[in-house]
């Protein structure tokens, strides 16, 4: 791999990592409230189709993003209602949400007299700056020359970090995820906090989905996001529930996604490896990272919210 290939890989990794940042930070916020939402994949897909549809109809990327965010949040309400109000198993409800979202996205892409499927997007997110300083060596491809959502992802991660650790609401959020009974006794409305942050997670997952359909693969197809939703759930653990670390974890996986393509193009002996094997690379990386991170004494520093996945019932005794 020569220098230009390396830079190309890094540039691509940032692009591929961006939707993962949105979805991972979203899931971190949700899990910090003590709710495990395995519906990320479904919410991302619905966000992807909703954003694509809105831009396709109106020609506005902004509107596409807004609709994707609303769609993701709306879908997450199903999980919030099931897990917070009805207190059903969060695993079952989350998985159901992914199945439902996958089917819904596929259906919406094919419904109507002029189905979306096979159509290219009317507009696509373009680099903010092109030419000029964006062509500077190294700095250009690494920091400049991305589209606006790449920078928004940095803002979202930094903002989420500040919110979690420096604000009153963030404190309530962490407390609800750690120990809802204590939080409630201190005057925090546990159900409200949980609903709000499940929806925030859904909104960010929707945004992540839209990044696929409006920037990475801007032609509607049935499965535009691969397994990004599942990767995001794994990244939450890799980032040990910290939004700042999610950025690095997401880019690492973006790089893994990209490297498989690079390996196929750089010639012998790498190109002899079947592409289907290389396609497993990110997942293999996920499994290895999980094993390394959760084994032995490291597990203690992971910091999973103590009440994650446990329904809260005030009058339980």
């Amino acid at each position: 791999m020569n220098e230009s290939q390396l830079i190309l890989t890094i540039f691509a990794a940032i692009g591929l990592g961006t939707p993962l940042i949105f979805a991972t930070v979203g899931e971190i916020i949700t899990e910090r409230a003590g709710i495990l939402n395995l519906g990320v994949q479904g919410m991302m897909l619905v966000g992807a189709v909703a954003g694509f549809w809105a831009t396709f109809k109106t020609g506005s990327l902004t509107l596409g993003v807004v609709v994707a965010v609303i769609a993701g949040a709306a879908l997450s309400v199903i999980h919030a209602y099931a897990s917070i109000t009805l207190r059903v198993s969060q695993i079952v409800s989350g998985l159901a949400l992914t199945l439902f979202g996958t089917g819904l996205a596929s259906f919406l892409g094919r419904a109507g007299s002029e189905p979306l499927v096979g159509n290219p997007s009317r507009k696509v997110f373009e680099p903010l700056i092109s030419g000029g300083i964006a062509d500077w060596p190294l700095v250009g491809p690494l920091l400049l020359g991305h589209d606006i959502l790449v920078y928004l992802a940095w803002v979202v991660a930094a903002g989420a970090s500040y919110y979690l650790f420096r604000t009153r609401m963030g404190l309530s959020l962490r407390a609800v995820g750690e120990d809802p009974a204590s939080a409630e006794s201190a005057g925090v409305n546990v159900a409200w906090v949980r609903y709000a942050h499940v929806m925030a997670g859904g909104a960010l997952a929707g945004l992540g989905g839209a990044y696929f359909s409006l920037a990475l693969v801007p032609t509607w197809q049935d499965d535009p996001i691969g397994a990004a939703g599942w990767i995001a759930i794994a990244l939450v653990i890799l980032a040990s529930w910290r939004p700042g670390r999610a950025v690095f974890a997401a880019y690492l996986f973006g790089a893994a996604e990209r490297v498989q393509f690079t390996l196929q193009t750089i010639g012998e002996p790498w190109s002899n490896i079947p592409s289907t094997l290389l396609a497993m690379l990110p997942f293999l990386l996920a499994i290895i990272a999980m094993i390394v991170l959760t084994s032995g004494k490291r597990a203690r520093f992971l910091g999973a919210p103590a009440a994650l996945g446990i329904p809260y019932f005030r009058e339980q005794r």
Binding site: R168, L171, S172, R174, A175, E178, D179, S182, A183, A186, G187, V188, G303, A306
Partner: peptide, 14 residues
């Protein structure tokens, strides 16, 4: 009390 929070954070909570 939320075990992973500090004393001061528990005062501030809610």
């Amino acid at each position: 009390l939320v075990p992973n929070l500090t004393v001061a954070e528990n005062f501030a909570l809610g």
